[in-house]
């Protein structure tokens, strides 16, 4: 295959709103937290600012009855995926076994995880809620996507904290290269809750410049040679060895500096770069948001030429994504395996 992967659709939601237009507005205004999350401790009232996503729009894509067992974390994933499919001009549901799903998440379904733990503490392990358990596992969102959007290709969830996004994109690269799928929906999903708010306060995360964020960002990827509606191309996706970043000549540096103190030193060691974190908040899997915002910035003329996106973790490892703007005009959407074309 070509060594480039095409981005054919993008769907994102977060504190900035939902969809392409909301994200473009945030690019223009600079963004900022749109809500707060209670600390949930004994003292009660205190809260911290946060970027809060709204999933109301999802009911435009999927019947409400189908969503009764879908928690908020998975609703964010479903809405991000639906927006990406719509952005690519694809039908919903997808109904294809040639499309794959990869979800990247550092924290998983936080609210449901702690609700499940509470049910064990309050009622004993024999009476812990099966429904809460099934929605608490990290792979629950990918499962809901696969079932409700009728995507029966390979399905995976990756949790590698700050490197979750780049790891998901590397895997999608492999699937497309190997022919395991003809298209891959890759998405970052994160959720905030009162436990995270408490931890930010209790363990000093709030002393950093970062602000808790939640939301989802999905990219619909295809082999460049197959894509007729590419919005941009990923030229390189990697986790390079060593700590020395090789700057890509002429490319704009986008750093995933979302205020986490553990990674701040690394970002400070780099050339000054752009950070989009003020639009979406602090997210472990935020590098996929950086890819989407970079493409939007390219399309809006805010960035010219290629983007080199960098996201570091606290162990000094980092992920690198090189994003090239679309060079050919968009053509009519064509998608799915041969039987659907």
């Amino acid at each position: 295959m070509s060594d480039r992967v095409a981005i054919c659709g993008m769907g994102l939601l977060g504190g900035f709103g939902a969809g392409r237009n909301a994200a473009c507005r945030a690019l223009g205004t600079g963004g900022g937290p749109n809500g707060a999350v209670d600390l949930g401790n004994m003292e009660g009232a205190a809260s911290l600012p946060a970027y809060i996503a709204d999933t109301t729009l999802l009911e435009q894509y999927l019947n409400k009855r189908l969503l009764r067992r879908v928690n908020r974390y998975s609703k964010m994933a479903l809405l991000g995926a639906c927006l990406a499919l719509e952005d690519a001009g694809c039908g919903i549901p997808v109904a294809s076994d040639r499309v794959g799903v990869i979800i990247a998440s550092g924290y998983g379904a936080l609210s449901t995880t702690f609700e499940f733990l509470d049910s064990m503490i309050n009622d004993g392990d024999a009476l812990a809620s099966p429904l809460l358990f099934s929605n608490s596992v990290h792979s629950s969102a990918a499962s809901h996507l696969s079932i409700l959007l009728q995507i029966s290709g390979p399905c995976l969830t990756i949790s590698q904290f700050e490197l979750s996004g780049v790891a998901a994109l590397m895997t999608a690269y492999d699937w497309l290269a190997d022919g395991a799928a003809d298209a891959v929906l890759v998405g970052a999903v994160e959720e905030v809750n009162s436990v995270m708010s408490y931890c930010y306060d209790r363990f000093g995360e709030s002393t950093a410049t970062g602000t808790m964020g939640e939301g989802a960002c999905f990219l619909l990827l295809r082999r460049e040679t197959d894509a007729v509606n590419a919005q941009a191309c990923l030229e390189r996706v990697a986790c390079p060895e060593g700590s020395q970043l090789k700057r890509e000549p002429g490319a704009t540096l986008v750093v995933g500096d979302d205020g986490q103190p553990c990674c701040a030193d690394y970002y400070r060691s780099l050339d000054p770069g752009i950070s989009f974190a003020s639009r979406y908040g602090s997210l472990p899997s935020g590098q996929i948001f950086d890819v989407a915002f970079s493409v939007l910035a390219q399309q809006m003329g805010i960035i010219s030429g290629r983007v080199q996106s960098i996201k570091a973790d606290k162990e000094g490892k980092w992920g690198e994504i090189l994003i090239a703007p679309r060079t050919a005009p968009a053509r009519e959407t064509q998608f799915m395996d041969e039987s659907h074309v």
Partner: peptide
């Protein structure tokens, strides 16, 4: 069936 499992727990609870 998933509701049935939950319902069994709810009856006991």
């Amino acid at each position: 069936s998933l509701d049935a499992v939950e319902l069994a727990v709810l009856l006991e609870k």
